[in-house]
């Protein structure tokens, strides 16, 4: 690929055609060769919004890493209480994993349907995504409830405090994501596939897929390593 425009190229285009290139174009499409080199004007809003949300997601993952670090440090500090091996029900964890992975997939299908502007298909796949997410949250709440019933609540030991903080934080993210999903369904239904709605849908998809990525780390480090070793 070429090296891109030299400063004098940019200057001559600017003088002849104004700051946005050949056509005056608020999204900076006029001088596409220069995109990313600071001379082609701002990137399309979709890219800016998506990138900003990507940065948020990465900082959210950094926050989760602090919970993971706390859990890794405290995992053996059971204060004579139950260990993960005694508490974890691997069948339920497998089911939770299946629900969340399936919901990540149906979320993607909904996104493809939205890109093709198919209202009913979009609503259907988003509804399936929401129901799978709800099933996941219900399973997790049941697990927490049973653990607390058996005297293994967050105040029992440092291990359980770290466990409830980490897993609970992820569950809270899924619950909030579910509320966002419902809002998006309503907005798509009543407002249609307008550009700003599509941008929000892009952000929601990123959020939902990121939750599944965190769950992969979570079921491996907390449940599989906890139940085995």
């Amino acid at each position: 690929m070429s090296k891109g425009p030299t400063p004098s190229d940019v200057a001559s285009v600017y003088l002849q055609h104004g700051p946005y290139g050949q056509r005056h174009d608020p999204h900076g499409h006029g001088y596409a060769e220069a995109r990313g080199h600071g001379a082609g004007g701002p990137a399309p809003k979709r890219v800016i919004v998506g990138y900003g949300f990507w940065i948020f997601l990465l900082s959210d993952i950094v926050m989760f890493s602090a919970f993971f670090a706390a859990y890794a440090v405290l995992v053996h500090q059971t204060a004579g209480g139950p260990t993960g091996k005694q508490l974890f029900d691997m069948k339920r964890v497998g089911l939770e994993t299946a629900f969340l992975l399936a919901s990540s997939f149906t979320c993607g299908l909904g996104y493809v349907a939205a890109a093709m502007r198919k209202q009913i298909q979009t609503q259907f796949w988003m509804l399936v995504t929401g129901l799978l997410g709800l099933a996941f949250v219900i399973l997790e709440v049941t697990e927490f409830y049973e653990m607390i019933q058996h005297g293994a609540g967050p105040s029992r030991s440092a291990f359980l405090s770290a466990f409830f903080a980490l897993v609970g934080c992820h569950g809270l993210h899924v619950s909030v994501g579910g509320l966002w999903l419902g809002t998006m369904m309503a907005q798509i239904w009543f407002k249609g596939f307008r550009p700003e709605i599509m941008r929000r849908l892009l952000c929601f998809n990123l959020f939902w897929h990121a939750l599944d990525i965190i769950w992969v780390a979570l079921f491996t480090i907390v449940y599989l390593l906890g139940a085995g070793a």
Binding site: H29, R35, V47, G50, P195, L202
Partner: peptide
């Protein structure tokens, strides 16, 4: 993939989550 604005150029940045190759549907 989706929602690209009308003048899509292969040198442009892609938003995270957007499939750049432009496949849609199946």
């Amino acid at each position: 993939m989706s929602g690209h604005d009308e003048h899509w150029n292969e040198h442009d940045d892609a938003a995270p989550g957007d499939e750049h190759a432009g496949g849609s549907g199946w």
